[in-house]
């Protein structure tokens, strides 16, 4: 039987491409997923959780591992094991906390000996960490051989602006405001003391109906985790707002709750 050349050539070409395709499908399949803003997946939010979140960011959105290894001297960048302790001795008169934050926001200011000035500013695109992510990652770095004492206020207010690609600095939380409302009225029991728009009527704590207008997201997030640390609202009793939400709420509930509060304008 005579097979037309076109058919033979076509079959041959398909065979060639088919084998390339087969090979490409047989190797490990790695997708590159866009990072989530502030990843607090699983568990409750405590200082230890903050460190955990920082570690997550270190591995994902921060892309730090592209250059840094922990516990292994890299060719491109210093080993970060023990950096939390070593940081205090890097620059005379500069605390560990300040040094670490500086090394994130202005990496060229102090160069570790033997390494080139290639580290990018991590609050600038394309890494573009926002303030709370910087906070988490600073906490994580401190945890590597030092004590975690960094607070959100240590991160300069200007850091992380324009992180989301030209957009003004705004905290984008993956949370679901509807679910957050349920937490507010349900598990969180905030409703026992607070009013928030149409939800609740209690007068024990301040009316939160416009909280997102009068307060920053960082403040709201911090207030839930550690009310005492952020001072007491004038005219209200101290120590009434419960301090244990960081332990009782799961990360998802926390994030949803914040998302809900941020809709209150």
């Amino acid at each position: 039987m005579h097979v037309p050349v076109g058919l033979k050539v076509g079959a041959f070409s398909l065979l060639v491409m088919g084998s390339y395709t087969y090979f490409a499908n047989s190797i490990p399949q790695i997708e590159s997923r866009p990072p989530e803003e502030l990843s607090l997946e699983g568990g409750t939010v405590t200082p230890a959780q903050l460190v955990k979140a920082g570690e997550q960011i270190f591995k994902t959105k921060g892309t730090c591992e592209v250059c840094h290894k922990i516990g292994e001297k890299g060719m491109r960048a210093p080993d970060l094991a023990g950096v939390g302790g070593r940081a205090a001795k890097r620059k005379p008169g500069v605390s560990a906390k300040q040094y670490l934050i500086e090394s994130l926001l202005d990496p060229g200011a102090y160069l570790v000996e033997g390494y080139p000035n290639i580290m990018p500013r991590v609050d600038k695109p394309p890494i573009g960490l926002n303030r709370s992510e910087l906070w988490a990652i600073a906490a994580f770095l401190e945890s590597l051989g030092g004590t975690v004492d960094v607070t959100l206020d240590d991160i300069p207010k200007t850091a992380g602006a324009a992180a989301a690609g030209g957009a003004p600095a705004e905290l984008k939380l993956p949370g679901d405001p509807k679910a957050g409302e349920a937490v507010f009225a349900g598990k969180g029991a905030c409703i026992a003391c607070h009013k928030a728009g149409k939800v609740g009527a209690a007068q024990v704590g301040p009316d939160l109906s416009q909280i997102a207008k009068i307060q920053t997201p960082e403040y709201i997030m911090g207030k839930i985790l550690n009310p005492a640390a952020l001072g007491t609202v004038a005219g209200y009793p101290k120590g009434v707002m419960p301090p244990m939400f960081g332990q009782t709420l799961t990360a998802k509930e926390y994030v949803d709750l914040v998302a809900f509060l941020l809709t209150l304008k």
Partner: peptide, 19 residues
Amino acid sequence: GVMRDTSVDAVTPALGYAA
């Protein structure tokens, strides 16, 4: 670094799919 892909397709697919 300037304009993010916020669409449903922001994931960069793996090689098999690309192939």
